[in-house]
């Protein structure tokens, strides 16, 4: 009996640590995308996490694991579409983001629909759903149905245990704004299609929530040139 308790305790402990790491990574991700988050929110220590998000019996309460973040002024400026005669006062493409950890044993179409509806009803421009179980194919099809109102992204907790952008082999990625993209294409006299490409499902592109058509600047270290910048178009 004691052995069983011990095993259960260990499993619970492992679960808490894993979720804490995913919680940290998702905060870093939201921060890196340009949303406003405080330093103490991003770098939450394990003890504090345990104190805040566990029930009295020491088990994790996933219902509490949710937060929203507002885009910073800089980010809003970056993703502002250009003013046109028809649309003299454009609204920024980015809005408040909603992040939630799935509190369910399965992620099917129903759960995805619930999440999408919640994000759309509360006017969140994008929603990030973290799941610890696999996503069914019909759930993925649901995402496109909400594209008119909100952008839904989903991540597996397993993929967010470490922050991949902190790895030494991952160079710095910077998303270019519309103006910067136009300037780049003009400077090198390129068409969009002549740029090298990066897939939407690329882990780093997913981390930054890139959309098709955006350009990312990748800054590498170079032995000969010091720094070397290359550009990739998201497809």
């Amino acid at each position: 009996m004691a052995d069983q308790d011990e095993a259960q305790y260990e499993a619970n402990e492992r679960n808490i640590v894993r979720t804490w790491r995913a919680w940290r990574t998702v905060h870093e991700m939201v921060h890196d995308r340009g949303y406003e988050l405080g330093e103490e929110e991003v770098k939450i220590p394990l003890e504090e996490f345990r104190h805040k998000y566990t029930n009295a019996d020491g088990s994790l309460s996933r219902t509490l694991l949710k937060f929203s973040a507002k885009p910073s002024d800089e980010m809003q400026r970056k993703f502002m579409p250009p003013a046109t005669p028809q649309n003299t006062e454009p609204v920024s493409d980015c809005g408040t983001v909603w992040v939630e950890f799935l509190d369910d044993s399965a992620l099917g179409a129903e759960q995805m629909r619930k999440f999408g509806r919640f994000c759309a009803d509360n006017h969140y421009k994008s929603g990030i759903l973290l799941s610890n179980v696999a996503v069914s194919s019909s759930a993925k099809k649901e995402i496109s149905k909400f594209s008119q109102w909100t952008t839904i992204e989903w991540f597996l907790e397993d993929d967010l245990l470490i922050n991949i952008t902190h790895h030494e082999l991952v160079p710095r990625h910077v998303i270019l704004s519309r103006d910067e993209k136009v300037a780049l294409l003009k400077r090198y006299r390129l068409k969009e299609t002549q740029l090298p490409r990066i897939l939407v499902r690329d882990p780093v592109a997913k981390y930054f929530g890139m959309k098709r058509g955006q350009v990312v600047k990748i800054i590498r270290r170079s032995e000969t040139a010091g720094r070397y910048a290359s550009y990739r178009l998201c497809v």
Binding site: A106, L107, G108, A134, S136, S137, S138
Partner: peptide, 12 residues
């Protein structure tokens, strides 16, 4: 129909 099967499997 395949989607339905995987959906049911996801529900266990």
């Amino acid at each position: 129909y395949e989607d339905l099967i995987s959906e049911r499997n996801a529900n266990g």
